[in-house]
Design a protein around this nucleic acid. Structure first.
Length: 520
RNA sequence: CGGGGCGUAGCGCAGCCUGGUAGCGCACCUGGUUCGGGACCAGGGAGUCGGAGGUUCGAAUCCUCUCGCCCCGACCA
């Protein structure tokens, strides 16, 4: 095949040519977000924000169904609050935005400067997370064991002064949800931690069509101040791991720091047991990197801002009305259909833009289905149907009578297909590796100058020693993403997680394999 | 925050070495021909060349500083 015969893709470069650049181009081509004038902060555009809204709505229902209530706490956290939990301080101190003044005045050069007379007595920290401020509230709210459990969630923005940012994956300000709960017993708090991890895993697989491995993190990867951190980890198309959600068992650390005490049935003063758990706009990044291709974004129907775009094909003004009428009726009927707990959402693109361009725009935006309606279709009682998970030119005429049912059926099929494909990709790039040489080879690019996509998930034995974990990290930038608690679908019997083995680093005995990978 | 790269029209880039006040493709606007399709022809609009200093008769081009973005690393959702 000559160079010029290479299939033209809507996105350049392709994933294989330059994955990082491809990602950015998809974000732009799909009109999801853009860089803002503020360093490290993004503007989320309507199409991208709608995805977040769908994530929000779906998760919110799941939180409510598990007994949680939403509330809202201050953006600002007094410095002294953050100082209350030693490990917490250590973890977050180096990435905090600090508010020191409450007024601006004219400066010597005509600009504005903070008024020295308006300096805050105690600096306020723009929340990097809300354990401490919510802890303070909880301390007020909880008196008796009858006040427990306290199950609260907050949708908010947070700020972490990141040194290296990437749209959606890591930005200085990001949107998220943070659940905070307090319980009377350790067992109950542990159960809550697990329950929410499960909610996240379900959401990832059923809504995002993104398979995840769930389980505890190693001590080294723990949330600052947590006793145990659990996570869901997904594999992106460049085979790197992405932490898509975390759930923390905080023990009594924060209860002690914030004074969350209650009187037990036995009339004793006790510290509550707390948890926290969160997912962020990073999920949008995860979605992009799970399914999208060299023609742009690919969205799971369940979270797509719209399911269908109807593209009219006009030839001359005399037939325009007829076609519009046909489209209108079709749209109405489609919008009455239920799919995945909501109505089918339809866009009709009437813009005066060339047909081909219009079509490609929607392909790049990842809308699941495109329906073309021209005079021919109106007259024959049909429409052309094209799906985003097939080649752009792959279209089929569907009789009008079957169209509506076909749309619903196809959306379901696509949702399932995306998960299957992602599962297959993960399985194909997950390997049981038992000796160090093979491990090193797995995580080393053949082309050092321009590393190709390589590696994946290595299921290897680990003795549990942090030193071995660090040795791998230093040598290969590979970390233990998660300690799996079940077999990994699609991986095959030769890679059984639970069997005796020897640590891939030091050779000491190990009872199970863990997931090693490069990560975001 | 360390190493590297890059900032020239909305997007992608050339020009910079060898200073003489900007060019290409796509997008955009107008007219026409096309048209189940990322078309073609003709005409047109759009850039204080990231910002600030400096050198010079003259700076996108040379020097200094600064801001931002990207990649690699350390850190992290």
């Amino acid at each position: 095949m000559a160079k010029n015969d290479a299939p033209k893709t809507a996105i350049t470069p392709t994933r294989n040519d330059d994955y990082a650049e491809w990602y950015q181009q998809v974000v732009r081509a799909a009109d999801l977000a853009e860089q803002s004038p503020v360093r490290g902060c993004m503007v989320i555009k309507p199409w991208g924000y709608a995805i977040w809204e769908n994530i929000q709505r779906s998760l919110d229902l799941m939180f409510k169904a598990t007994g949680h209530k939403n509330a809202y706490f201050p953006l600002f956290i007094p410095k002294s609050f953050l100082e209350k939990e030693a490990q917490h301080v250590e973890g977050f101190a180096k990435e905090c935005a600090v508010v020191t003044h409450h007024r601006l005045i004219a400066g010597p050069d005509g600009g504005l400067i903070p008024d020295p007379a308006a300096k805050l007595e105690e600096p306020l920290i723009v929340r990097p997370t809300s354990e401490t401020i919510i802890g303070a509230a909880f301390a007020q709210w909880v008196q008796s064991y009858r006040d427990l459990p306290l199950l609260i969630n907050q949708w908010a923005n947070v700020v972490r002064w990141e040194l290296r940012t990437r749209l959606f994956l890591r930005t200085t300000e990001f949107l998220w949800q943070e659940g905070h709960t307090a319980h009377a017993t350790e067992a109950e708090a542990r159960e809550e931690t697990r329950k929410m991890l499960e909610v996240y895993a379900t959401f990832a697989e059923d809504y995002m069509a993104m398979p995840v491995i769930k389980g505890p993190k190693t001590a080294g990867e723990r949330f600052p101040g947590a006793v145990d951190t659990y996570a869901i980890e997904a594999m992106m198309q460049d085979r790197k791991a992405l932490q898509a959600g975390t759930s923390h068992f905080l023990g009594q650390n924060f209860a002690k720091a914030s004074g969350i005490e209650f009187q037990s049935k036995e009339e004793k003063k006790e510290f509550a047991w707390t948890t926290s758990w969160g997912v962020s706009t990073r999920l949008v990044g995860a979605l992009i990197m799970s399914h999208s291709d060299d023609d742009g974004l690919v969205l799971p129907p369940r979270l797509a801002p719209a399911h269908v775009v109807i593209l009219p094909i006009f030839r001359g003004d005399d037939t325009r009305g007829k076609i519009l009428e046909y489209i209108d009726a079709l749209k109405k009927e489609l919008c009455d259909q239920r799919i995945f707990d909501r109505n089918v959402e339809v866009e009709v693109d009437l813009r005066d833009v060339r047909g081909g361009d219009k079509q490609w725009e929607w392909i790049k935006k990842g809308i699941p289905l495109r329906i073309e309606v021209g005079l021919r279709d109106v007259e024959s009682g049909a429409a052309m149907l094209a799906r985003r998970d097939r080649a752009p030119k792959d279209k089929a005429s569907v009789p009008r009578g079957e169209l509506v049912a076909k749309v619903v059926e196809t959306l379901r099929d696509m949702q399932a297909g995306l998960l299957e494909k992602a599962l297959a990709n993960r399985a194909a790039n997950t390997r049981a590796i038992d000796d160090r040489a093979a491990f090193d080879a797995f995580f080393t690019a053949k082309n050092a100058d321009k590393p190709e996509i390589h590696g994946g998930f290595a299921l290897s034995h680990w003795c549990g020693d942090g030193a071995c974990e660090t040795a791998i990290k230093d040598a290969l930038r590979v970390t233990i993403r998660v300690i799996p608690e079940g077999e990994i679908p699609g991986v095959g019997a030769s890679a059984t997680v639970f069997e005796q083995g020897a640590c891939v680093v030091c050779g000491k005995p190990s009872a199970q394999r863990v997931v090693f990978a490069k990560s975001y």
